[in-house]
Simulated scan of single mutants.
Amino acid sequence: MKERNLNFLIVEDEYITQKSIEKNLNALGHHVLGRAMDYEKAVSILTNEKIDFAIIDINIRGDKSGIDLGAYIANHIKIPFIYLTAYADKKTISSAINTEPYGYIVKPFQQHDIVTSIEIALLNFKKENINTNEDFIIIKHSDKNIKLNLDAILFIESDKNYLNIFTKKGIYKYRNTLQEFSKILPSNFIQTHKSFFINTDKITTISKTTLEIDEYKIPISTSYKNSLKEFL
């Protein structure tokens, strides 16, 4: 995606839920460009507006469901979308999965559920569609979206639901998992510990149990020692 705030479509037939999602998106700096409670209205918005991302409740007004809308998006419009629903039965999940959404949130939800699902969806969408020459990510830092080149990263440390991304200019906190984030890293990044991925081009010194990148000491666990040795 471009390094800008995104235009969202919310398809939800419960007004309070719709406004709650919009409030969360606005807090992230995004813009809700379209709101719909049924399939026809949603398709009209998708046809006439530049929507970057859709959040779709599976059970909406009218004869067609949110899953029908997801199928329409998958077949006609190349944007990421996630489902929102109060139902998590096998039949519903199976039907939803067939439309290849980028996420699935079960009600009731909290703000971090929305945030995490959007960020993972964008990461996976970018991985599938990004030009391989665009080796950067967009990170929200101090209420601004900044472009961070991957080759500027020294190493990444996992910290529960967040990642600490270390660069010479500073440390950036990013909500994601280490394994998901590693999918977009170039081949010169390698895992040295369950909590660390390092940029091998930035290694200063290396020993049996640790390596150094600038002033930072990073552990090398037994599980990853051989793969690191083979890489180097």
Rank of each mutant, 00 (worst) to 15 (best):
T222G: 01
I51M: 07
V32M: 03
P80L: 07
V106F: 12
I203H: 10
Y224Q: 02
Q111K: 15
I10G: 01
Y174K: 13
I55S: 07
I203Q: 08
A88Y: 12
V106A: 05
F189G: 05
K107A: 02
F81V: 06
D38N: 15
T210E: 00
V106M: 14
I60G: 11
R175Y: 03
F231G: 00
K225W: 04
I93K: 15
Y162T: 14
M1E: 01
L46F: 03
Y162S: 15
Y87I: 15
F8N: 09
A36I: 12
G66W: 10
I171H: 04
I97R: 13
I105N: 03
I120G: 01
F8Q: 12
F136D: 05
L232P: 01
I114N: 03
F166P: 02
T205F: 15
G34S: 06
Y224C: 05
I138R: 01
N226T: 11
E14R: 14
F181D: 09
L150C: 09
N131R: 15
K194C: 06
K229A: 05
Y174E: 10
D13R: 11
I82Q: 08
L28I: 04
K202C: 11
L28N: 01
E12G: 11
A96M: 04
E230P: 01
L148H: 11
F196S: 00
Q191C: 05
K126Q: 08
Q18D: 00
E14S: 13
N149K: 13
K127A: 09
E230C: 05
R35H: 07
H141F: 15
Q179N: 14
I130G: 13
K140G: 00
L33K: 14
